[in-house]
Amino acid sequence: MSELLGIFFAAFLINNILLIRFIALCSFFGVSTKLDTSIGMSSAVIFVMTVSSAISWIAYNTVLAPLHLEFLRTAVFILTIASLVQLEELYLKKAIPALYRAMGIYLPLITTNCAILAVAFLAIDYKYNFIQSMVYSLGVSGGYSLAIILFAYVRERTALAPIPKWFQGYPIAFITAALMSLAFLGFTRMFGL
């Protein structure tokens, strides 16, 4: 149990996927200008990431590894994720049209959200079993949501603050991210990990 908690917190805070590992930054800067879009993106990521890492774990360990087809993993994983995203898009369009409109272009772009694919690869590289890889993907997507929602709060304020002209827009966003990343570095060695 404590091992699972360790995996969760290591993924959630210490190796935060956005601020420490630098994965999925396009969406981090893209949707974080408003709080509601970043909440929508986070929920999409949590859902897609958990389901897709389960499916890709099963695909790798029951089909690819026994048949020695490991070299096909890139193609297999990306196709799994692409079809899942299509499914979620259909579901959201029907069930929650307001959220679907709010997320606009970023929902299909979740296919190229590297976090989803990275978690599938990393869970295999770390040789996690099924339960561990589920906990790991929950930790990663939770950390993604935490970072992007906090960042959206800050960006809503910097949008109104008097900032030198050259730094307006993306440059100040990157510097904000640098400060947040510095704060997350403080979690290193926490829980003895």
């Binding site: 601020l19 420490i20 630098f22 002209k165 050259w166 730094f167 993306y170 440059p171 100040i172 966003a173 990157f174 510097i175 991210a177 640098a178 400060l179 990343s181 510095l182 997350f184 570095l185």
Partner: peptide
Amino acid sequence: VMILPPGAFITIGFLMALLNKVEN
């Protein structure tokens, strides 16, 4: 700190600001 994660964000932020200024 510059080769740690925060350094990457700071560097690219300043590079973009510089590019804005030069272009202007």
